[in-house]
């Protein structure tokens, strides 16, 4: 039994055609996963369901054996799962550091020195203190991506969800980011789920799921 299990999940936006139809997927700790599919295949929709931002009516999603529709979703989002959104969803008027600290605040975890902790995490994803103290708007796309990753990691969740993390990055940066994800799975025993349509990503993960065929490719 993995950390995250999706069973017979179907979803449609208010009465329209089904975006997801009877999805069954299994995720474990310590591995990297890629969910692939064409644009409009429902990858982001699936991610929003896994992260609890949208609620499903058919099928279920189990986190650690528990149906996430029945648990405290805010607590789940702020502690158990780290989401790196396609558009990052960082607060632009805050600094990188402040964005990370905000997440730590929201998680309500007892961390003595949040600032020090946040700087450490930012350091791990390759952002030094100078950059950490810059406002989001003054960071490049790749740097913002790293801030989003740092924020997702800051409260040490079991699952890292990333929506098209390499989509806007150049090849070299994309590879660096992928390295971070692999390290997280390998060295920190995280379950890393990457939503992507990039072959480069799907080649470097442990497991690839295709939304079109509902099947395990690798």
């Amino acid at each position: 039994m993995g950390i995250l299990t999706i069973e017979h999940l179907s979803y449609s936006y208010d009465g329209r055609k089904k975006v997801l139809d009877d999805i069954n997927l299994e995720f474990e700790k310590g591995k990297t996963y890629a969910i692939i599919g064409k644009s409009g295949a429902g990858k982001t929709t699936l991610l929003s369901l896994i992260s609890g931002l949208a609620s499903y009516k058919e099928g279920r999603i189990l986190y650690d054996g528990k149906d996430i529709s029945k648990i405290d979703k805010e607590k789940y989002r702020s502690r158990n799962i780290g989401v790196i959104f396609q558009n990052f969803n960082l607060l632009p008027h805050l600094t990188a550091l402040e964005n990370v600290i905000l997440s730590l605040d929201v998680s309500e975890l007892k961390i003595k020195d949040k600032k020090k902790h946040a700087l450490e995490i930012l350091g791990k994803v390759g952002l030094d203190e100078e950059k950490a103290k810059r406002r989001i708007l003054k960071l490049s796309g790749g740097e913002q991506q790293r801030v989003a990753i740092a924020r997702a990691l800051s409260y040490d969740p079991d699952i890292i969800l990333a929506d098209e993390p390499t989509g806007n990055l150049d090849r070299e940066t994309a590879q660096q980011v992928m390295e971070i994800f692999k390290t997280l799975a390998r060295d920190y025993n995280k379950c890393v789920i990457i939503v992507t349509h990039s072959p480069m990503v799907s080649q470097s993960v442990d497991v690839v799921y295709s939304l079109q065929k509902d099947e395990k490719i690798q």
Partner: peptide
């Protein structure tokens, strides 16, 4: 947007 982000990162 700010409200959305706060909610997305798990703020009640």
């Amino acid at each position: 947007y700010e409200i959305g982000v706060l909610r997305a990162i798990g703020m009640k």
